[in-house]
Structures are given as structure tokens and as C-alpha cells.
């Protein structure tokens, strides 16, 4: 059995708790040892993808900047759930354009194709 594909599901709003930051740190640590990482942003986790974030105002590192840098660490497969964007009234135009939309059926299929899933 091949187990080097990890799916990270990030479902929490940025800055409200440490979950979003913890998800990114886990993704980087896994990629660093050669695990192929895919990230999916669901529910309020979509707010992490908004390009206009002024985290300096609350003394935090910008999550958007960290997400934008993920491809530099070989984490290139980034998705968000289209249905969640609609439910949150987040326009595709406001979402970082390197992150691809996924419908729920495709997301379920994607989950099936991974041996390990970590949810934050």
C-alpha cells in the first residue's frame, strides 16, 4: 500500500483560533519529508483565501501570504468547496485565483483517493 499522499482539510476561519495556522504548519512539515500534500479549504476556512487580509492589525502572520507561498514548498494542489463559497456569499473574484473550486461530489471522490486525511 502506498501511503505518501496526505489530504489536509482546513475548515476554520483564520485568526479566530490557531487551527488555520496549525494546518499550514502540518502541510509544510509533511511536504518537507516528501509526502505529497493536497489542501482543501471548506466552510469558514474559505476566509483564509481572501486576498485582502490585514493581519498586521491584530499582530498575526498573514495566512494568505503563507498560502500563496505553498507552491514554493511543492504544495500545488489547492482547492476550495464551491458550495461553501456560495453559502458564505464569498465571490470567486475575492478568492485567491490559484485555488481551484471543487463541488461536493468531486470533494468526496478526492477524499476517497487519499490514504490519510487530517482535518483542522
Amino acid at each position: 500500500m502506498i501511503l505518501s499522499k496526505l489530504l489536509i482539510v482546513s475548515s476554520q476561519a483564520p485568526y479566530f483560533s490557531s487551527s488555520a495556522q496549525d494546518a499550514i504548519e502540518a502541510a509544510l512539515a509533511a511536504s518537507n519529508v516528501g509526502v505529497k500534500v493536497t489542501c482543501v479549504f471548506t466552510n469558514k476556512g474559505l476566509y483564509q483565501l481572501l486576498t485582502e487580509q490585514k493581519s498586521v492589525l491584530i499582530g498575526k502572520k498573514s495566512l494568505f501570504k503563507q498560502i500563496r507561498a505553498l507552491p514554493l514548498y511543492d504544495i500545488e494542489d489547492l482547492y476550495y468547496i464551491k458550495d461553501d463559497a456560495e453559502a458564505l456569499s464569498v465571490s470567486a473574484a475575492d478568492i485567491y485565483d490559484e485555488v481551484e473550486p471543487l463541488d461536493l461530489v468531486s470533494f468526496n471522490r478526492l477524499c476517497d483517493s487519499f490514504d490519510a486525511v487530517l482535518r483542522f
Binding site: M1, L3, L6, A26, A29, A30, N32, V35, D115
Partner: peptide
């Protein structure tokens, strides 16, 4: 330990087809 300790164990599983490694959160 560093987090890589956990993920390196995942990688170890991929090199050994005899053993099934399961990650549970």
C-alpha cells in the same frame, strides 16, 4: 519532536508494501 517525525513514518509505510499503515486522527 518535530512534526516531520510523524510524516516520515507515513513515508516509511509507502516503501513497504507488506505492511498496511493507517493514520487515524
Amino acid at each position: 519532536v518535530g512534526m516531520s517525525e510523524y510524516f516520515a513514518a507515513m513515508r516509511l509505510g509507502s516503501s513497504n508494501d507488506e505492511v498496511s499503515i493507517k493514520c487515524i486522527q
